[in-house]
Design a binder for these strands. Structure first.
Lengths: 337, 337
DNA sequence: CTGAAAGCGCTTACAG
DNA sequence: CTGAAAGCGCTTACAG
């Protein structure tokens, strides 16, 4: 049970401890015969190099901290799975931090103590100040699916949220909708800010205005409440005939509420458009028209950017990826009959 | 940028390096005045103890490896989020491994190198042999939502999958269903084996047999294929009037397929029962009757068991938690009119 | 309570 | 190619 160390292997193989270390270091200079002796002894003893000790001396832990919150929104588990696989491919591992907003400070301290080589911040709820502190601590950071205002030394990868909002708004106008509403996510989040601004500008360009607005805070239950608010009015002509919802997770809650609680038909009575194009958007019961943000491209960009920063090859950059609108059946395709 | 160490703090505070270490060790004997000096110096320098160095000397990394695969099944992200929070509460952190079955060997080697203090194996696809190798390596392991046959020195936490299958079968019989089918998950997984055995025994006790069976492998798309197979027959009286699906993730795919592709009404034409009671089961569009496995209880039991094993307080144990059937609208409640 | 010293298990100049 | 040695940044007996 006592851990077997390189010294144990060295003794058995009758070589120096350095030789053992070299045999396990790709590219180190060892003769084939030495390597063979070491490998045999290591196998006999069940030796595995201690990554902790290696980290201490090399000053590289090969761990990347990933900070997330609210995995209920299916966008994030998928991202987590893929980013973990992507980093594993390069020999890195994910140290996961779930950030309840209240304990973010403590979480940050722990991240720093663990000497992660880099950090992916994908939590909307973590404050910008904390993100900046990581940067100050000299750790390469990439913000995933969020940005920090006025911060040019922080890297970020987002999709073009503004363009997505604009695209959705114009599509709704062009398909004949008259009373277009918006259900917002967390109001101070960069994603919501950009999506909503794009939405408003898109309407303005078509000579329209936002008909009504409610806030769902990116939360499933609050999105239901927001839908009830928006459709509370008695008269049908006073109610929206289309809603852009700031993400799919909320849009699904909204669809259920409209159909089941309020007895509305989608898209006949009201069109719904979401954002993210998560897998559930394609589910038969929803068939949600959605602005797609390409998770694969975002992850690849994030990994690249982080690895490049860790190599010192690159300074911080803000990467914005294109979006497209995926048309499904939750949205009327032509002017109302 | 050069990391500040305890020695730097010691110099500034004019105390020994040991004193700095003690000031950051809860319960160590330091005078208030020394602690104050250290804390001030540490604050000035932005010092954080190096958790890697601490791990090396204490031989405890305070990291728990969590091995998962296929986060598409919403049961797992929720588990991951909660187990991470639960362990953070005790000062542990999650090192995440996504196990593609093909690279499981490499993954295992890496886990071992990282000196995790414990391991939660929640991946159905990872082979039993690998799990046992971890146990042999002397690292406390808890299997989550799976078991290994004939292995009494491996801890596991599951719900009572057998009882759940039985409960579902009897409920379907008692509510008047005549042709009850089963859609299996991964056929050699312990969860599927137990659920299916319970299902068959439940039917047998009521003097019935399984009407038809297909395999969905716990995969969304394959579950759709399985549903098509099961309902391919022309004559209605040749088709199932109820299906138990081995988990909710597949049950949702099945419901979509039955309703949208095959034009069937649920539950009028066919009842569907799932397993897990994930959040989506409660979504308005599904209202899926499901055998609930209590994720919170499973996580608490897993954390407790793992922590106890790491303390050496306890040997391995197999914990089986009770299930219950959550009735919703995907299942007819009385005999067919 | 405090400091000097040993040591955790590695990597990597350095000299041969 | 190889070995002896220093050192990564800590914790923790040990002695005072």
């Amino acid at each position: 049970m006592a851990a077997v160390t390189s010294l144990d292997v060295a003794r058995l193989a009758q070589v120096s401890q350095s030789a053992v270390s070299r045999a396990f270091t790709p590219g180190a200079s060892v003769s084939d015969v030495t390597r063979a002796k070491v490998e045999e002894a290591a196998r006999k003893l069940g030796y595995r190099p201690n990554a902790i000790a290696r980290s201490l001396i090399t000053r590289r832990s090969r761990m990347i901290g990933v900070v997330m919150s609210y995995l209920d929104n299916q966008f994030y588990p998928v991202v987590l799975e893929k980013i973990s696989q992507r980093l594993q491919r390069d020999g890195y591992h994910v140290l996961l931090f779930i950030a309840d907003s209240r304990e973010a400070d403590a979480v940050l301290a722990e991240i720093l103590q663990y000497q992660v080589d880099g950090l992916v911040l994908a939590s909307t709820s973590m404050s910008s100040a904390l993100a900046l502190r990581c940067v100050d601590a000299g750790i390469p950071v990439v913000l995933f699916n969020r940005t920090i205002r006025n911060s040019h030394n922080t890297s970020s990868v987002t999709c073009d949220n503004y363009a997505g909002g604009r695209l959705a708004a114009q599509h709704l106008v062009d398909t004949g909708h008259q009373r277009i509403a918006y259900i917002a996510g967390m109001e101070d989040s960069s994603t919501n800010l950009d999506r909503e601004r794009g939405f408003r500008d898109g309407l303005t360009e078509r000579g329209r205005r936002c008909f009504a607005r409610a806030v769902g805070n990116y939360d499933f239950e609050l999105a239901k409440t927001a839908a009830r608010e928006l459709f509370a009015g008695g008269d049908v002509s006073q109610r929206p005939d289309a809603v852009l919802v700031a993400n799919d997770h909320m849009a699904i809650a909204v669809m259920d509420t409209l159909r089941i609680e309020l007895g509305l038909q989608i898209p006949q009575d009201v069109s719904v458009v979401g954002f993210d194009n998560v897998r559930q958007a394609a589910w038969g019961s929803y068939q949600l028209t959605s602005v797609e943000q390409d998770a694969d491209a975002m992850i690849e960009a994030t990994a690249r950017l982080l690895l490049d920063q860790m190599d010192g090859a690159v300074q911080s950059r803000a990467i914005v990826l294109p979006v497209c609108l995926v048309l499904r059946n939750s949205c009327r395709r032509g002017p109302q009959p």
